[in-house]
Write a protein that binds this DNA or RNA. Structure first.
Length: 257
DNA sequence: GTGGCATGGACAT
DNA sequence: TGTCCCTGCCACA
């Protein structure tokens, strides 16, 4: 679940529930020292790609990364007991938000936060910067299927989005980025922004707005559009899914640059 | 009950 | 490229 759209989704919800209020911070699991945050005001909750930051008044920032297995749990009743293994609970009188199994939950100073942000490429759910996004994608040395997972190219895309976006763009995951035309790269960026924004608001991957629970190729046996058996192979170390009938290897079909 | 896999990424090699 | 780490879910005994 935790690709960039969900991180933005949770940042929006947690900000709405807890932002601007004094929070109680605890670590039911005991693996995090919440003392520096407890009783202080939560100023903001920010998402950048797959990273989330809590800005707390007069305290270091909390950097959260869910990795593959982390999750946020919302409790409308803040007295609900936390499940065992809850790394961090932030609560006020109206709600509690629990963080489970993150790959990162650290207190960072401003320089360390800046260092993380500096490594990230344009975020499709951040301010629109098509020129930077297109340049980053087209100058990547490798296939587009690897570029989309590289957070320094675009920040927030994960394996599920990679599969669905490349399907909709008719791009084979092994298409070299150097072969992408500016128009293709721009179209892919715009598609990514549009769908990930729907995904952020819905709290799930949305690759067909008319049927948000469906996928075109990701983890499917057959292509939802044409029925061809979905092909899979590791691209950049993760399983890529594509429709061999609709996503040609573009070795010869070379677009204008 | 067990084992394998996974929507991620850091680090060693 | 391989290894490791955070846990949940599923298929299979």
């Amino acid at each position: 679940m935790p690709e960039g759209h969900l991180i933005h989704h949770f940042a929006d919800r947690i900000r709405a529930d807890l932002g601007g209020t004094e929070i109680r911070a605890t670590s039911p699991q005991g693996k995090f020292d919440a003392g520096a945050l407890d009783g202080r005001r939560l100023l903001d909750v920010r998402a950048a790609g797959k990273h989330l930051f809590y800005d707390v008044e007069d305290a270091p920032a909390v950097h959260v990364h869910l990795g593959m297995r982390g999750l946020f749990l919302h409790h409308p009743d803040p007295t609900t007991p936390a499940r065992t293994g809850t790394r961090l609970r932030l609560a006020n009188d109206d709600a509690a938000w629990d963080l489970i199994a993150p790959s990162a939950c650290d207190l960072l100073d401003a320089a360390e936060v800046a260092r993380i942000l500096a490594k990230l490429g344009p975020d499709p759910l951040g301010p629109d910067d098509p020129a930077a996004a297109v340049t980053a994608l087209r100058s990547f040395r490798g296939p587009v299927g690897a570029a989309l997972l590289d957070q320094s190219v675009w920040a927030g895309v994960g394996n599920a989005w990679r599969a669905e976006l490349l399907f909709l763009a008719h791009l084979h995951p092994r298409t070299p980025c150097a072969d992408l035309s500016a128009d293709q790269a721009t179209a892919l960026w715009e598609l990514t922004r549009r769908l990930m924004a729907l995904g952020r608001d819905a709290g799930q991957v949305v690759s067909d707005p008319t049927d948000p629970d469906e996928r075109w190729v990701y983890r499917r046996a057959t292509c939802r559009r044409c029925g061809t058996a979905v092909a899979t192979a590791a691209v950049a170390g993760r399983t890529a899914h594509w429709c061999p009938a609709e996503q040609d290897e573009q070795v010869h079909a070379l677009p204008t640059r």
